[in-house]
Design a protein around this nucleic acid. Structure first.
Length: 577
DNA sequence: GCCAACGTTGGC
DNA sequence: GCCAACGTTGGC
């Protein structure tokens, strides 16, 4: 059939296709003989009407629907002999319209490639060409939304493949919707025929581009390589078929010239090669997606199972899948465990070192926390000591006289205040602004010992206040100061050292040490808070490391990964801890 | 109003 | 000239 180079296939051949839609040339003679014998035996003459044209003509190439078993002329429905070679199961338009689950099934792409390459003549089937051009004209006349011929398998495809670049870009497949193009497998094969075919008939859209590019790519592609590595989609090939009206011979010559030209150009244009690599990537993606179409029933992979696998699965049932997985674990895991124990693992060593480091840091942080707790106790003791002291009025008067005329600017509001009242003003000013901002959390603080947070619960918001307790202007009331209370702030000997002597001015009037106790507590609390946050951070890091370690040693980790010693002559050594 | 996907455009 | 990006549009 293919080697004969005839454009017309007899009904005899057509009948032969009932068993095999595609018959290898060497087997064709046998099939013809067989059909002839059958015809003679049954006296079948052929007055029946076929196809959508309802003619009895069966001297042209025909293809039968595998659902309704009606026969169609290739040129009437736009299927060439070449197409038929790659089709495993063909369903006519009427059947596909009635039952959308029916899809034309294609054969193994390798085989198809081999044959299609060997039969250039059929590629330029005249009828097919006419059919395509009619379709194209029809489509061009329609509006923007019509990019579908409605007759090719791509147009009949209802679902996105989810694997091509356009699908991956779609939001439903987790993309960011940049490309906004239709699934490659759903792009009409009759739309956007190569521009060489008919001037500038179609706009250069994504789909068309891709296909034209692919055709170019095919031309350049080493046939042997293509044979081994690339499975060609029948749709793409089909479009190239209709791209020229030249005779096969002319086409061949043209192709030669083209490939020669390309051979010359290649070294000069690095950009071209870049494009090609991207094309090859895209092509692989398309082919990957096409592989899903290969619905050849195959045997279940389950151990000792002879049932056919479910569609799109390797197994006939979940049980078989589990069975195989289990047997894999039994077979692989023991050796992996053995290997794990015998070979060193750098990741594991690094993790251990990190854990040790984290442990040290945790100890340090806890030590600091204890020191800070001690500081609070010291402060309490200091305050207690101050309570037993009596007010010394002279000190108060002397200080007041000294600085009456100096003034400074408030760091919070910027207004000018006298130095005497500066601390008091700034404290009040700070509290005023602080009260305007809220810090809330839905969680109550859980800290060993005294919490430094306010943790006032707001039942309306169902949240806890996260200001420092000592500084919270909203929920912590200023303690009432007794008129007889002494300031009690330790007076520093010099700038950095604190003396034993305490300020004995009345607490209410001491302008030098206003709120000293509160600020000191806040300072200590802030340091405690930092240490707690550090501990939290260390804990998180430790958790992550431990998780990584357990994953590495877990069943899944052992099954999936393996350490390979690429240089057995100098075996790997664990770095000493 | 949402969404698929067409058609245009600017950068390379 | 190619192509990623995105504004736009028609269908639902």
């Amino acid at each position: 059939m293919a080697e004969g180079g005839t454009e017309h296939t007899s009904k005899k051949e057509k009948k032969g296709e009932i068993a095999h839609k595609f018959v290898l040339p060497e087997r064709q003679a046998k099939v013809n003989l067989l059909i002839k014998a059958m015809e003679q035996a049954t006296g079948d003459v052929g007055d029946t009407l076929y196809c959508i044209c309802r003619s009895s003509d069966c001297e042209r190439f025909m293809i039968g629907c595998d659902h309704c078993e009606e026969w169609y002329h290739g040129d009437c429905i736009g299927v060439t002999q070449l197409d038929a070679r790659s089709i495993k199961r063909y369903y006519c338009d009427a059947c596909r319209a009635r039952n959308p689950s029916l899809e034309i099934q294609y054969k193994n792409k390798k085989k198809e490639k081999r044959v299609s390459e060997s039969s250039d003549q059929e590629r330029f089937d005249k009828h097919h060409k006419e059919y395509r051009s009619k379709l194209r004209e029809k489509m061009m006349a329609k509006s923007r939304t019509t990019r579908r011929c409605g007759e090719c398998s791509a147009c009949h495809r209802n679902e996105d493949c989810g694997r091509c670049d356009f699908c991956k870009d779609m939001r439903k497949f987790g993309g960011i919707n940049k490309l906004r193009q239709k699934c490659r497998l759903r792009q009409c094969t009759n739309y956007g025929i190569s521009t060489s075919d008919k001037g500038s008939v179609a706009t250069d859209t994504g789909s068309e581009r891709a296909v034209t590019d692919l055709s170019d790519f095919e031309d350049d592609f080493d046939e042997e390589e293509a044979y081994e590595n690339v499975k060609v989609a029948p749709k793409k090939r089909e479009r190239r078929t209709s791209s020229s009206e030249a005779s096969p011979k002319k086409k061949k010559d043209k192709k030669k010239v083209k490939s020669k030209e390309k051979g010359k150009k290649t070294p000069e244009k690095p950009q071209k090669s870049r494009q090609k690599s991207s094309l090859s990537r895209r092509r692989t993606e398309v082919d990957d997606a096409l592989e899903t179409d290969d619905d050849m029933p195959r045997q279940c992979y389950g151990p000792a199972c002879i049932e056919p696998a479910r569609l799109g699965s390797k197994y006939c049932s979940d049980e078989c899948g589990m069975k195989l997985a289990k047997s894999r674990i039994y077979e692989i895991l023991p050796s992996r465990i053995q290997q794990w124990h015998s070979s060193p693992c750098v990741g594991e060593d690094n993790n251990k070192k990190l854990l040790e480091q984290l442990r040290q840091e945790t100890i340090e942080a806890r030590l600091k926390l204890r020191q800070l707790d001690l500081k609070i106790q010291e402060l309490d003791a200091l305050v207690e000591r101050g309570k037993h002291l009596s007010v010394v009025a002279e000190q108060e008067g002397a200080e007041q006289d000294e600085d009456t005329e100096l003034s400074i600017y408030c760091v919070t509001c910027g207004s000018e205040v006298s130095q005497k009242g500066a601390l008091r003003h700034m404290e009040k000013c700070y509290l005023k602004f602080e009260a305007q901002t809220s810090f809330w959390s839905i969680y109550k603080t859980r800290i060993e010992g005294n919490s430094m947070f306010c943790d006032f619960y707001n039942p309306q918001q169902k949240m806890y206040c996260k200001r420092l307790k000592i500084l919270c202007p909203e929920h912590t009331k200023e303690p009432k100061v007794n008129p007889d209370a002494v300031c009690g702030c330790p007076i520093p000997v010099n700038l950095f050292t604190e003396g034993d002597v305490l300020c004995r001015a009345p607490k209410r009037k001491c302008v030098k040490h206003f709120c000293w106790e509160k600020l000191r507590r806040a300072e200590i609390d802030m340091q405690r808070l930092r240490q707690w946050m550090k501990l939290d951070d260390l804990f998180e890091q430790e958790r992550n490391i431990r998780m990584a370690m357990s994953n590495r040693m877990g069943v899944l980790g052992l099954m999936l990964h393996q350490t390979v010693d690429h240089d057995p002559t100098t075996p790997m050594k664990t770095t000493p801890n």
